[in-house]
Design a protein around this nucleic acid. Sequence first.
DNA 1: ACAAATTTAGACACTCTTGTCTAATTCGTC
DNA 2: GACGAATTAGACAAGAGTGTCTAAATTTGT
Lengths: 229, 229
Amino acid sequence: MKLHVSPDTFPPRGHEAKRLSIVDSAAAVFCREGFAGANIDLIAAEAGVSRQTIYNHHGDKEKLFVAVVRDLTERCNAGIFATIATFPDQPKDLEADLIGFAVRLNQNCICNRDGKFLRKLIQTEGERYPELFAEWREQGPGRTWPAIAARFARLAYGGYLTIEDPDVAARQFLGLVNAELQTTFMLGGSPREDEVVQSATNGVRTFLRAFGKRRSVTSAEKQSALANA
Amino acid sequence: MKLHVSPDTFPPRGHEAKRLSIVDSAAAVFCREGFAGANIDLIAAEAGVSRQTIYNHHGDKEKLFVAVVRDLTERCNAGIFATIATFPDQPKDLEADLIGFAVRLNQNCICNRDGKFLRKLIQTEGERYPELFAEWREQGPGRTWPAIAARFARLAYGGYLTIEDPDVAARQFLGLVNAELQTTFMLGGSPREDEVVQSATNGVRTFLRAFGKRRSVTSAEKQSALANA
DNA sequence: ACAAATTTAGACACTCTTGTCTAATTCGTC
DNA sequence: GACGAATTAGACAAGAGTGTCTAAATTTGT
């Protein structure tokens, strides 16, 4: 006979599926309408459950909101660390590899559904839940930025780059590769793939002009060659 | 005798003062609480007027919101163009002058009350009023970015910089000098003055590593000297 | 000080939303 | 097929907010 100790939560399976569906819909509605404007009936309708089920799972609107932010932070962090793992530690073509990394970071972590939602919730409700977003700050930028900085430090140590402060370089890298997407981000939109690639390409090229080894022949060749594009 | 043609609007003077006060308070409350969460009674209380006066001036909540965004856009644009006018066209110390410009831009246009409010309103309600924020996009980034790009183009023409695409350079300049303020911006906070200066300094330094004339003796001296700071 | 316009406080109807409750129904498991 | 747990639909009370209205009080210009 099968013991029902299957997952880690006591209630059966369909339960978790509904929980997920609720959190997903809630994320979308909270983003669209803001916390105050979000309507529990609408969330229920979009999740395909009854309103009462939401109250059974989460208690009240505020607890639901907290659960949404926690979930999003967790999933986004997982995505970011998975992407950081693809950082080019021993690049064959430094420029192309960094562009690839930047594009992956954008597509998988910042422009995808979860990233977009989390960003907007932080922007709109961050001041209302200081402790919740302090937690995000520690778990998010507080852990991912140093991780990226460490990768750049390794590249510098390997002789691929000339960097004084890896933390500054990491933040500037992110600022550069997203430089052309700011307006789109502001309005809550998702940039098209070619816009992401374009911004990353321009950003990485400038980054390497600042931090790349100047004497590298390939990089010099590449730069003059690409200047015509 | 004095003709009452004084300003450009028919009603007396105190009228305009109240209008301003209402719009200011409304901006603050809309930002804090979001459109749906904003309470007209609260706006009235903060503005020191009665609720009815708000309805007399603006009709309803939505019209009030539109008026707020229009006002903020106008004031911010004015500030940005005033600051762009201080761009160093013939710099004595390129690095210091660009840092000064970046700091002014941040302090006067982005981190001040109006800039902070406008940014947040765009982020939170941008999707709800597409035409209103399309207008902002045209009047804001659509006009200020090219203006900044033109200044950089002039610097390049004057031999101070090596730039292929001034538009790209301008956007990257903004991305770089704000690279370290992103998290603060996200949470709706205002960075301290020293943070603004720090971010601008690091950003401009990297910008000049990428686009500055390498042969310039002063800039080379400065860079090595500042590396110790 | 007078007259017109504006502002105010308060009451009001109306709508919308949250969160609770109940009884009926469905689902998963044995 | 039967049992128990979970889900559902709907009604419901309580509260909050918008926008209107009125009569009184205040400001403004002359």
